[in-house]
Design a protein around this nucleic acid. Sequence first.
DNA 1: TAGATTGTTAATCGATTAACAATC
DNA 2: TAGATTGTTAATCGATTAACAATC
Lengths: 220, 220
Amino acid sequence: MAANNRISEVVIRRLPLYYRHLESLEKSGVTRISSAELGEQIGLTASQIRQDINFFGAFGQQGYGYNVRELKTHLAGILGLDRGYHMIVVGVGNIGRAILNYQSFYDRGFRIQALFDANPALHGTRLRGIPVAPADTLEAYLSKHAVDIGVICTPREFAQQTADILVAGGVRAIWNFAPVQISVPPQIPINHVHLTDSLLVLSYKLAHSEQAALPSEEDF
Amino acid sequence: MAANNRISEVVIRRLPLYYRHLESLEKSGVTRISSAELGEQIGLTASQIRQDINFFGAFGQQGYGYNVRELKTHLAGILGLDRGYHMIVVGVGNIGRAILNYQSFYDRGFRIQALFDANPALHGTRLRGIPVAPADTLEAYLSKHAVDIGVICTPREFAQQTADILVAGGVRAIWNFAPVQISVPPQIPINHVHLTDSLLVLSYKLAHSEQAALPSEEDF
DNA sequence: TAGATTGTTAATCGATTAACAATC
DNA sequence: TAGATTGTTAATCGATTAACAATC
């Protein structure tokens, strides 16, 4: 599906935005939309939206625009949401639990099969119905189960070794929340979520915003 | 500090990476580094690094490179980390707690003063020493305390109204974790953390990776 | 000093926007 | 059909890379 050859990263990163917005349009009962309307709603130009979509195919219709449900379905396919994914989460501290609680992941086909944690108090318990196994049983688990996405929510010092075990065990992609750089073989897609980076960008904007000039250092 | 006029977003988003890397170099005892070495280590060209840094000033020295500690200090200033920020977190579910547990935010000057939650069981308790107040006391709290950054970790349906209260109460920037689009006045910097987007990008990459062609649909 | 490496300008590359013929 | 809006090519804009003189 999809003429995928070398789509640029900036385009790929806009796809989830398109997808989310189409989902919400569909929920509101909107059945068709033009690139101009869509652009206005999500803050992009109509040109850019048409360009982006046309990297993958001609899903619109001249004189009409796009069928919301149809375009959404195409995007789901392009994003790989038309298949199911098996996920495991290693480390069920707060971030691990936050992910577990995201119902929308489940709805989009991302199924968490198992949880792993070093804390013995959690072993044998279930969180949201999913069993928590000892972290040192991860390797054995992977030898018996096919896992698509491994989510790393361990403390930073265990992140790399966890990634190594995941990759050796055949996990096909890594989603890393540990605040440390992790290296994996180049064919394994990996996404890092650096919360700190997001906060520092916000800090930059705050420090350089108009308002920033006015208030004094500390007013507490 | 800093010739800040209209630095492009892509440059700004690289600053935290530079900063984090310099921190780690400093910890390892590295005192000087050239743009070529730095580029190799973080995967950018030497040219790009020099360009990025020079938007803010000439912090290097010909024939020598950059002094790690000095450049880090400059970047801290540029990012606004040389001042302290007062933060509050609204909603202390898993994401709220995860943020609370990020020691590194505290170390960089982001101080969480207060927590708010709708759950009565939490009222009057403390998490990591920080008191949890009822969500409906947020407005009163803001009338008495100056807050720089408001972190929204509420369920999606309360996110916009929380943002409205924060902005009306004088909060200067918003960090939003609720999976919904929030609107605030244009002068208020806002950063959205969309975990779903990150997962969908990973899904895209997995669906279009080399390996993806080989395995069958479901092998479980 | 000679060697190294920055700061900065110029050249290239890629992404966005504009324009318009095709067509529903 | 006439009007609307896509798909797509061309023009513009911006970001990255290359090059090199300045200088430590």
